[in-house]
C-alpha cells in the first residue's frame, strides 16, 4: 500500500514550478489591475446625501467608541440627538428605507462597480483552474509531506482513479488549491496590506464605498448605540493617576 513512488523530475520542472510561478505572477498582476481599475472610479463626485449619511454613521461610531470619556449626562444628550424616534440623525423612516433599497438595485452604475470587483477576483482564478485542468490532469504530480486518511482521496486525487496510491500523493489540481490558499500569506507580505484578497473586507468596513446601503448601516448603528452601557472612565482615571504619581515619588 505505502510503496514509494518515484516522481519524474520533469514533472517538477514542467508542472509544479511553472504552476507556482504563474500563480504568484497572476496574483501580482491582479493586484496592479485592481489598483488601476479603482483609481478612476473614485473621481466622479458622489451623491451628497450618501456622503452625509456616511459621515453621520462615522460620527455615531466615534461617540460609541469614546463614550466612556464623557459624563453620563453628556452622553445621554448625544444619544438622544442621534437615536431619537422623531428627528434623530440615525432614524430612517420606513418608506425611505424601502426607497433607498429600490434605488440601489436599480442603479446600474453601482452594480457595474461590484461586478468589476468580483470579476477581477473570479476571472483569473477560473482561467488558472481551467489551464491546470486542461494541461496537467490525470497524473500524480506531487507528494505532500504528511499522510492523510482515505477520506481526502476524493479531494486530493481527483482525476486519478487508483485506490492503491497513498493519499499523500496529490494531483496537480490539488497542488493548485494548495497554492491558492498557501500563497495568500506570501501576497500579504510582498504586496503590503492593500491586497486584492482582503479588498472586500475593507469595502465593508469603509461603508462609504459601493454597495453601501445607507438605511441599513444607519439602523445598525442606531441599534448598537441604543444598547451601549455607559460607564464614565474619568473618575477611575484620577485614582489611576494618583497611583502612578505615588509610584514615581517612591522611586
Amino acid at each position: 500500500m505505502a510503496e514509494e513512488l518515484v516522481l519524474d523530475t520533469a514533472i517538477r520542472d514542467w508542472v509544479l514550478i511553472p504552476l507556482s510561478v504563474v500563480m504568484v505572477l497572476i496574483g501580482v498582476l491582479r493586484y496592479f489591475v485592481s489598483k488601476l481599475m479603482r483609481s478612476p472610479a473614485a473621481s466622479p463626485s458622489p451623491d451628497p446625501k450618501l456622503v452625509r449619511e456616511g459621515q453621520v454613521v462615522i460620527r455615531a461610531r466615534n461617540l460609541r467608541t469614546n463614550a466612556q470619556f464623557i459624563p453620563t449626562k453628556a452622553f445621554k444628550a448625544r444619544k438622544v440627538y442621534y437615536t431619537n424616534e422623531e428627528n434623530g440623525l440615525l432614524h430612517v423612516p420606513k418608506e425611505d428605507a424601502q426607497k433607498a433599497q429600490a434605488a440601489m438595485f436599480s442603479d446600474p452604475n453601482m452594480a457595474m462597480d461590484m461586478m468589476k470587483k468580483n470579476l477581477s477576483m473570479i476571472v483569473p482564478q477560473t482561467l488558472t483552474f481551467a489551464w491546470v485542468n486542461f494541461f496537467f490532469s490525470g497524473f500524480v504530480a506531487a507528494k505532500i509531506p504528511f499522510p492523510l486518511t482515505q477520506r481526502f482521496r476524493g479531494m486530493l486525487q481527483n482525476g486519478i482513479d487508483l485506490s492503491t496510491v497513498d493519499v499523500s500523493y496529490v494531483s496537480s489540481r490539488s497542488w493548485y488549491f494548495l497554492n491558492l490558499f498557501g500563497l495568500r500569506g506570501l501576497f500579504s507580505l510582498i504586496l503590503g496590506e492593500e491586497n486584492a484578497t482582503d479588498d472586500a473586507q475593507k469595502m465593508m468596513q469603509m461603508g462609504g464605498g459601493f454597495g453601501f446601503n445607507p438605511a441599513m448601516s444607519l439602523g445598525a448603528e442606531k441599534d448598537s448605540l441604543d444598547i451601549i452601557q455607559h460607564d464614565w472612565a474619568l473618575p477611575k482615571m484620577e485614582r489611576h493617576a494618583e497611583d502612578v504619581l505615588k509610584k514615581l515619588l517612591k522611586k
Binding site: 517538477r12 506531487a142 507528494k143 509531506p145 504528511f146 498557501g182 500563497l183 495568500r184
Partner: peptide, 15 residues
Amino acid sequence: GGLMSFVLFWSYPLM
C-alpha cells in the same frame, strides 16, 4: 492563517 502557507512552503523543498 499561517498553517496553509507553512504546508505549501514545507512541500517545496521536499520535492
